[in-house]
Design a protein around this nucleic acid. Structure first.
Length: 429
DNA sequence: GAATATGATTGGAG
DNA sequence: CTCCAATCATATTC
């Protein structure tokens, strides 16, 4: 901003010392004929104009006034007008265009969406609520954090608005200042309203580019806030025990094909009060981690399988032994795979029939139900001993490639599979 | 505080 | 789109 005066100073200096010959020449022609006198006049005027910036304000004002009253002024003014006529065309050609900035629009939209630039009430909290919903949190425990988030957001909002106001005010002030200046200058040089308009436009553009920076940094702040408060990854919470159990139950009871259908996922999501995508995530993680280290999950597998088997057993003993719908796949596939693999398997067998389940809640139950279990298994898979019975909880579903056996292959059981879904879920509902 | 568990994300394949 | 695999970031356990 202080560039201009400096530039003018430089210019004046050039006028003075850069071309001493010229002023010299002008000055040398003093007191000749009339034409020479006029020349000297003009030289004087020009000199005064050039040195005007070197003078003090009062001095300059006085000089300016003197110049304004000078008899040559109208003539010079006319010359300036003529020059202006010619240059104004090129100026007009220079501007034009300037489409609405896409970047600015994006920022505006985002700020509006985040409730920063929208209406005061509702905007922020609505956005926060939307964000909360999007984050897929359970909701109950993080309301406090949401209020924290809202507080921070409104803080950002407040800063944004005060800054924006400041900028607007500064813009207006500067605009009126420039307009006054131009008006003032219009006495000595021709200034068209269009020019003023253009100048105002330039100022506004400058200020809006500053505003854009403000908007950008506000957006950044909001993003950081969001990621800190709402990024689910950052505030990972373990699912509650019940949810994990439900998911595990489903997983191990569909071990041969642990791919819940969309409906099954929804069902599970509802039961666990998590989102469907969380269910998907869980199954994705579970499959991969189970496959990676089957041994590690063996005990867990046994536990859940036993549990489902027990419930199946109780169902079957209660009459409708319509072949234990809760473990369709595992039971089915158990029949189709020979006991080929893994010592883990035998270990687990041991533990099932031994007393290593004492600690588990279902341990006693399992022990007491072993016979029923055998019975059920023998009905569904045709096994006659406990060892074989346990096989159903082994990882037979995984094929040599590490992928899960296709449930539709003939080796898998056919009937109860019907979509690894909802049968199990249905039973408990 | 390191080790481990776990939910979420990312990037590639199909 | 789903799934897998690797990875991240946090939670939990020891």
């Amino acid at each position: 901003m202080d560039e201009q005066p400096r530039l003018m100073h430089a210019h004046a200096a050039v006028g003075m010392s850069g071309h001493p010959g010229l002023s010299q020449h002008i000055q040398d022609n003093t007191g000749a004929n009339d034409g020479d006198g006029r020349k000297q006049d003009i030289g004087d005027i020009l000199q005064q104009i050039m040195t005007i910036t070197d003078q003090s304000l009062d001095e300059a004002q006085a000089r300016k006034h003197a110049l304004n009253c000078h008899r040559m002024k109208p003539a010079l003014f006319n010359v300036l007008c003529e020059i202006k006529e010619k240059t104004v065309l090129s100026i007009r050609g220079a501007q034009e265009e300037e489409p609405p900035d896409a970047q600015l629009m994006r920022l505006d939209n985002m700020l509006l969406a985040e409730g920063v630039s929208g209406p005061e009430k509702g905007g922020g909290s609505a956005a926060a609520a939307a964000a909360a919903a999007a984050s897929g949190g359970v909701g109950a425990d993080n309301s406090a954090e949401h209020s924290d988030y809202r507080a921070k957001l409104s803080q950002i909002r407040q800063i944004y608005h005060t800054e924006l106001e400041k900028y607007e005010q500064a813009c207006n002030e500067f605009t009126t200042h420039v307009m006054n200046l131009l008006r003032e200058q219009s006495r000595t040089r021709p200034i068209s309203p269009k020019e003023i308009e253009r100048m105002v436009g330039i100022i506004h553009r400058k200020f809006s580019s500053i505003q854009m920076q403000l908007k950008q940094s506000t957006c950044e702040a909001v993003m950081i806030l969001r990621s800190r408060f709402l990024d689910a990854r950052r505030k990972r919470r373990n699912f509650n025990k019940q949810a994990t159990e439900i998911l595990n139950e489903y997983f191990y009871s569909h071990l041969s094909n642990p791919y819940p259908s969309e409906e099954a996922k929804e069902e599970l999501a509802k039961k666990c009060s998590i989102t469907v995508s969380q269910v998907s995530n869980w199954f994705g993680n579970k499959r991969i981690r189970y496959k990676k280290n089957i041994g590690k999950f063996q005990e867990e597998a046994n536990m859940y399988a036993a549990r489902t088997a027990v419930s199946a057993a109780s169902v079957s003993t209660h009459g409708s032994q319509a072949n234990s719908p809760s473990t369709p796949n595992s039971a089915g596939s158990a029949g189709s795979f020979s006991m080929s693999n893994s010592g883990d398997l035998f270990m687990s067998v041991q533990s099932l029939n031994g007393d290593s389940y004492q600690g588990s809640q279902v341990g006693a139950n399992v022990q007491s139900q072993v016979d029923t279990l055998r019975h059920v298994i023998s009905q569904t898979g045709g096994y006659s001993d406990g060892l074989a019975a346990n096989q159903m909880y082994s990882p037979q579903g995984i094929n040599a490639n590490g992928g899960w056996q296709d449930p539709t292959t003939p080796s898998s059981v056919t009937s109860p599979t019907e979509g690894p879904g909802s049968v199990h879920s249905d039973t408990s509902n």
